Amino acid sequence: MDQRKIAAAIDGSDYSDKVLDKAIEYARLLDARILLIYCHRKFPKILGHPYRDHIISAIMDETNETVAPFVKKLTESKVPFEERFMEEPAGSMIPQIAECEQCELIIMGSRGLSNIEGLLIGSVTHKVLHIAHCPVLVVK
Score class of each variant (00 low, 15 high):
residue 77 S to A: 14
residue 49 H to K: 12
residue 102 Q to P: 06
residue 65 E to V: 01
residue 108 M to D: 03
residue 71 V to A: 10
residue 58 A to H: 13
residue 17 D to L: 12
residue 33 R to A: 10
residue 5 K to Q: 09
residue 60 M to W: 00
residue 30 L to N: 11
residue 40 H to S: 07
residue 138 V to D: 03
residue 46 I to Q: 12
residue 115 N to Q: 10
residue 44 P to I: 10
residue 111 R to L: 00
residue 56 I to M: 10
residue 129 L to W: 02
residue 59 I to R: 04
residue 138 V to G: 07
residue 13 S to K: 03
residue 94 I to N: 05
residue 54 H to R: 14
residue 98 A to D: 01
residue 121 I to W: 08
residue 72 K to T: 13
residue 138 V to M: 02
residue 140 K to G: 09
residue 37 I to E: 00
residue 91 G to A: 04
residue 119 L to P: 00
residue 5 K to R: 14
residue 67 V to W: 11
residue 131 I to M: 06
residue 83 E to K: 15
residue 6 I to G: 08
residue 115 N to F: 02
residue 102 Q to K: 15
residue 79 V to R: 07
residue 140 K to R: 15
residue 90 A to P: 14
residue 60 M to I: 03
residue 29 L to H: 10
residue 63 T to G: 00
residue 12 G to H: 09
residue 87 E to I: 07
residue 6 I to P: 10
residue 34 I to K: 09
residue 41 R to E: 13
residue 21 D to C: 08
residue 68 A to I: 06
residue 115 N to G: 14
residue 128 V to N: 11
residue 122 G to F: 05
residue 41 R to D: 12
residue 81 F to K: 11
residue 50 P to E: 11
residue 68 A to L: 12
residue 93 M to W: 00
residue 62 E to A: 13
residue 13 S to C: 01
residue 8 A to G: 08
residue 101 E to K: 09
residue 17 D to E: 14
residue 24 I to P: 03
residue 78 K to P: 05
residue 74 L to K: 05
residue 96 Q to F: 08
residue 36 L to W: 07
residue 117 E to G: 13
residue 53 D to I: 01
residue 113 L to S: 02
residue 7 A to R: 06
residue 52 R to Q: 14
residue 123 S to Q: 02
residue 61 D to G: 09
residue 55 I to T: 02
residue 63 T to N: 06
residue 9 A to E: 08
residue 27 A to I: 07
residue 117 E to K: 15
residue 105 L to T: 03
residue 120 L to K: 12
residue 108 M to S: 06
residue 57 S to V: 03
residue 87 E to V: 02
residue 92 S to R: 15
residue 83 E to P: 04
residue 86 M to R: 14
residue 17 D to I: 10
residue 127 K to M: 04
residue 3 Q to K: 13
residue 98 A to I: 03
residue 89 P to L: 01
residue 74 L to R: 05
residue 3 Q to L: 06
residue 120 L to D: 01
residue 87 E to C: 02
residue 100 C to Y: 09
